[in-house]
């Protein structure tokens, strides 16, 4: 197989030209406008906009909640991927397709239903609230929603790797006297680490930018449950000079997501090799 390097097939100019124009107009132009606005500010102004106490609280919450949720997603994702690949049981196919639901379900629906489920009269809240666990309109709610959105990434990155694990290594480990746990810990887990980290990074990236579902569940209280994307929106809606401030915060978030994209690309290359 392989690509033909002399351009034998027709359509090179047309397809590449269209691709470049399309990406430029839809991606580079808007994001360029965002960066240009931020660069147009002088440094002191920029710092004053992105480093207010309210903004710092919002970054801390956005990053903190994404990291915690992605860690939980990694454990849940490994569990579900393992069960789906290794075990036969009734309902396996259904479980497998349900993993994709958080992807297909609009985030607004997820936000709506989670905000209701954990409230005092909700199905889960009626048990949790008497125990003192108030998950509605709290930071906990943000983490729960981000786990819902993030765990499919881990399942779908780890699943094919578990599938491709070599049975021989496990047999060898067993024959050499390893217990099942030792085999998992020293033989299987190291092979899964690259994909687990990739899934984790994907979940963090998605969680960092998530807005639709969190608007519903968090209550959006400044300093408490306000995430960075929400702060951008509220600054934008205030209008006037605040738009520039919104842009500055957006640039910080954009820089974070683009660095994560680079990291994820590296990780994916690594986990393909490993």
């Amino acid at each position: 197989m392989g690509r033909i390097s002399p351009k034998v097939l027709p359509g090179y100019g047309l397809s590449l030209g269209f691709t470049l124009v399309y990406v430029s107009v839809l991606v580079l132009l808007p994001l360029g406008a965002c960066v240009a606005t931020a660069v147009g500010m002088d440094w002191a102004e920029f710092v004053a906009a992105v480093w207010t106490p309210r903004a710092r609280a919002a970054y801390a919450l956005s990053f903190g909640a994404s990291l915690i949720a992605a860690s939980i997603s990694t454990i849940i994702g490994l569990l579900i991927a393992w069960v789906l690949v290794r075990y036969q049981f009734p309902g396996r196919r259904l479980l497998d397709s349900l993993v994709d639901l958080p992807f297909a379900l609009p985030t607004a629906v997820a936000g709506l239903v989670f905000s209701h489920l954990y409230s005092a009269e909700g199905w889960l809240g009626q048990f949790l609230v008497p125990l003192g666990i108030e998950a509605a309109y709290s930071r906990l709610a943000i983490v729960i929603v981000l786990v819902f959105i993030g765990f499919p990434f881990v399942v779908r990155t780890v699943q094919p790797v578990i599938q491709s694990l070599d049975a021989e290594e496990e047999e060898a480990a067993a024959l050499l006297g390893a217990t099942r746990w030792q085999t998992f810990r020293y033989v299987l887990l190291p092979a899964l680490v690259p994909s687990l980290i990739t899934g984790f990074a994907l979940a963090v990236a998605r969680g960092l930018g998530e807005y639709g579902s969190i608007v519903f569940v968090s209550g959006n209280m400044p300093y408490k449950t306000e995430i960075a994307p929400f702060l951008i929106v509220s600054r934008l809606e205030e209008g006037g000079g605040r738009v520039v401030e919104a842009t500055a915060i957006a640039t910080v978030l954009l820089a974070a997501s683009l660095s994560l994209l680079v990291v994820i690309n590296r990780l994916e290359a690594w986990s393909r090799k490993g």
Binding site: V23, V27, L28, P30, L31, A33, C34, T37, A205, L208, G209, E210, Y211, G212, P229, F230, I232, V233, L236, V243, A246, T247, A250, L253, L254, S257, L258, L260, L261, I264, N265
Partner: peptide, 19 residues
């Protein structure tokens, strides 16, 4: 570049169009 929209927060994308 094709991957970029996957990692950009939708809110940032919306803001970019506003700008």
């Amino acid at each position: 570049l094709i991957d970029v929209p996957l990692s950009v927060s939708p809110v940032v994308a919306g803001l970019a169009f506003v700008l």
